[in-house]
């Protein structure tokens, strides 16, 4: 009888914890969207009335829309560069055996365990020393470093599932190595590559922890602007701007999900 009781307790506790976890994970985003439609001047819950006035204010604000533009083009550039760099690295790790391969793999994933503050300050100093602190390069490079682990992981996963025999067949048909990569390898792992690029985009688009050190004098991204604004005010304009970010992110996740399936997102 005792064993039945522990089974029961574990089942109930598990269900309760899962309900709590999913609610907790979803609630901030839902509340931001709900409160962005308020018609009142202040943030309150439950929101009063329904209006799009805060969206109008957000769209008219140069401060936020300029930052949205910066965020977008930085993220697009990061996605492209991270994909090229990360693909080269992942391809080498997957196909060839060479000395220092384990070190390379470790290096590729190391940005995950370097605290954002440390990376941010280190890069800021480097670029001040290079006299490039006021350009957009610090942001690009910082986001690139952050995006590499995600790209390498996604590309490695799709290379691992990919059938090498198809390449061998192409080579038997006298295709040059470059042609094999271009006509056989790349098309076959295209979904993996696309989702890697999208991952890089999202990483860059949402990042605030490293970016806020790298926007020294200009070129602020949207999350950095939101962070600065949030430091001293709290109003529905912020909810509207944040909702725009949520929608962009959600659309992108759904696209990845369609491309490679949710299981492989991890």
């Amino acid at each position: 009888m005792k064993s039945d009781l522990t089974d029961y307790v574990m089942r109930v506790a598990g269900a309760a914890i899962r309900a709590l976890v999913y609610t907790m994970l979803a609630i901030p985003a839902i509340l931001v969207i709900v409160s962005s439609f308020t018609s009142s001047d202040t943030m309150e819950f439950p929101p009063t009335g329904f209006s799009l006035r805060w969206y109008r204010t957000a769209l008219e604000s140069d401060r936020f829309m300029g930052a949205l533009w910066t965020s977008t083009y930085v993220a697009v550039l990061v996605a492209v560069i991270a994909l090229v760099v990360g693909f080269a690295g992942a391809f080498a790790i997957n196909r060839f055996s060479f000395r220092g391969k384990a070190v390379l793999l470790g290096l590729a994933f190391s940005p995950l365990i370097v605290p954002a503050v440390v990376l941010g300050i280190g890069l800021l100093q480097l670029f001040v020393w290079l006299n490039l602190a006021r350009t957009v390069y610090p942001l690009l490079i910082g986001h690139l470093v952050l995006a590499i682990p995600y790209v390498v992981r996604t590309v490695l996963a799709s290379l691992a599932l990919h059938n090498v025999q198809l390449e061998e067949a192409a080579m038997n048909l006298r295709a040059t190595p470059l042609r094999v990569i271009r006509r056989v390898t790349l098309p076959l792992i295209l979904p993996g590559l696309l989702s890697a690029a999208i991952f890089a985009f999202v990483t860059s688009f949402g990042n605030v922890t490293v970016s806020s050190f790298l926007t020294y004098g200009g070129h602020a991204t949207l999350p950095v602007r939101i962070f600065a604004y949030m430091d001293n005010s709290y109003d529905p304009l912020l909810a509207a701007v944040s909702s725009i970010m949520i929608v962009v992110t959600l659309v992108i996740i759904v696209i990845i999900e369609r491309l490679i399936g949710a299981e492989r997102l991890a």
């Binding site: 994970l25 901030p28 409160s35 943030m43 819950f45 949402g206 970010m245």
Partner: peptide, 19 residues
């Protein structure tokens, strides 16, 4: 639901918690 907070900007999540 699990992936959304991971990819969503931290500032947006923090703002949600303020609400």
């Amino acid at each position: 639901i699990v992936i959304l907070p991971l990819t969503l900007s931290l500032v947006v999540v923090v703002f949600g918690w303020m609400i």
